[in-house]
Amino acid sequence: MTAQKTSKFFRSKSFALIAIIIVMIIAFTLGNKNYISAGNISGFMTNISTAGLLAVGMVCLLISGNVDLAAGTEACMAGIFVATILGSGMPWPVALIITILFGAAMGLFNAFLVNVLGFMGFIATIGMSSVYKGLALVVSNGINVSISNQGFYPLGAYSIQMGKFALPLPFIYTVVLFVIYGLILKYTKFGRSIYLIGGNRNAARLAGVSIKKVSTILYINCGAIAAFCGAVSTAKMNSAGPQAISGTEMDSIAGAVLGGVSFMGGSGGLGGAFIGLFLISAFKNGLTAISLPTYWQTVAQGGILLIALVVDYFGERSRVSALKAEAAQAA
């Protein structure tokens, strides 16, 4: 039984990804021995948290067969929003809560487009991302909005010192949210109903699950988490810019899909998504560590995605043939 479980793990998608990550880390360390230094790791943790936070809401949406391509610009909007209301002298905890509600409202609007007007989610949210990008420019007038509130800054910039190593707060938020939402997805009735509507809408409906209700909650959730992400990122930078975070949702989606979350819905989970996201972030970080010219970094980012997709194909093929062999043995 244990042997079987082990062999299953070795054939799993996660294993392939982890293997790639290990090889990558070794390669980057050979290129720059500071790659696994305390400083770089804590920088890496700060970096992964933006895409990571967005991924939490996004993965839930993806599993339900939806997507929010405006998540990054929603975070950007929320960042400017929180900077603006802080500027009016509002205490930061209140401002944070209002910002999250603001994000939820943006999510609600997406849900309206998809559930009430019946638009295709990915096209409607591309449209919304363009709207938010423009609004961000309008509101900020094209320049960064800086923050004077002293209490807000640590929310994104504080790190817990552990000897030489600093554990950044945003990374802790990310891990906590991954764990909480991972548990929700696996162990709650609501979480399971997300898989239900993503796997077979009609079956879900006939089983009495309200597709619109679930997907509306998920859009709101994604918007709210995106707003939190925007607030944290603003705190980290101590200012909010009209270009911030936009586009990061693509990293979140790419990581999730690499980690086994299907774009069609109904399968995958946050664990795999985390591994996928880790791979992408570690790779980006490594490219900087070995000081590859910036322009080549863009090429390499696309390249790693393509390589991962190809590796996934061969992994899938070996899994299928192994399953067939198993079935043949059983028969």
């Binding site: 693509m250 010219p293 322009y295 080549w296 863009t298 696309g302 995605l305 393509l306 997709l309 194909y313």
Partner: peptide
């Protein structure tokens, strides 16, 4: 990638776009 290796079109073309943009810069 999409038709032979069954990769998802959305993400595959996104990756290709990144590579192309990067190469353009280079």
């Amino acid at each position: 990638l999409i038709n032979r290796l069954n990769c998802q079109g959305f993400i595959t073309t996104m990756a290709t776009a990144l590579v192309c943009t990067g190469l353009t810069y280079v």
